[in-house]
Design a protein around this nucleic acid. Sequence first.
DNA 1: TTGCGTGCAAAGCCTTTGCAACGGT
DNA 2: ACCGTTGCAAAGGCTTTGCACGCAA
Lengths: 149, 149
Amino acid sequence: MQKMFTDVRALLKEKNLRLTPQREAVLKILLDCEEHLTAEDIYDRTRAEYPEIGLATIYRALELFEELGLVSKLDFGDGGRRYEPALGKDHHHLICMDCGQIAEFNEDLLGQLHETIARESGFLILNHSLRFFGYCSKCKDKHKHEVES
Amino acid sequence: MQKMFTDVRALLKEKNLRLTPQREAVLKILLDCEEHLTAEDIYDRTRAEYPEIGLATIYRALELFEELGLVSKLDFGDGGRRYEPALGKDHHHLICMDCGQIAEFNEDLLGQLHETIARESGFLILNHSLRFFGYCSKCKDKHKHEVES
DNA sequence: TTGCGTGCAAAGCCTTTGCAACGGT
DNA sequence: ACCGTTGCAAAGGCTTTGCACGCAA
């Protein structure tokens, strides 16, 4: 983990950029917490360590990390954009339309689909996002009547 | 297609709502054009027929149609929300990160994945969104150097 | 000294809301 | 007349930008 920051620092240095305490704080929060945080969430948590930090700094850090491929911007239908560490992995989410719970799952069955699509479309596919929308086990009983057939 | 509007009119009538010319225009534009339109796009096109229409009306119509399940709100990472007709089908998109082209593809291999996920997670899955991000055949040469390994 | 990074405040965008007026039933 | 619907304008929420200052190289 500490190596992670060394790497990031080197990566930034190559581009004449710096890993400031603020940026490190933002990154640490994203890496530590395996959730999907909004900019505001990150702002709140960062202020615990840096009370003077500005929201704009959060956005600028997130933008930077996104360009570096360290962080991914996500967008579930709720309007709020969220961020998560992009560790080279693709995103697989289960989104409960009632309580808003967002779970993740791992699945490798997509590999062959990936290849098929790439071959047929000519796209160079770098990553993907697969989201299943529905109701989680806690909420689904409430919505049984909505599901026809 | 004409039957479509009759159906929608009936569906609305059940709820004491009306299929006004404005709403019909919005729906027609979405159904006609198999693209992913922003609210602004729809606004512009609708004004050809209804120059006095307001953007708020577009949003309200889209919200209504979404509640009725006729239209889906999409969100590609570009910040702009887009809409497409929801004909009960799931969404499979290929998004070019360079030129922004968004293509669709059909794929049934997801069926078994769907079942596996549902069984293991307990989720009641209603639909899903699968997006592959990368570069389309026209743009990919420009980005070859970015792709490591 | 140069120019990257920051905080603050202001500006921007897109979307939603309030409100008076309109129109179908 | 009632109430859903509309257009306009204003308000909102989130994100970006401008700017002067601070600070590391």
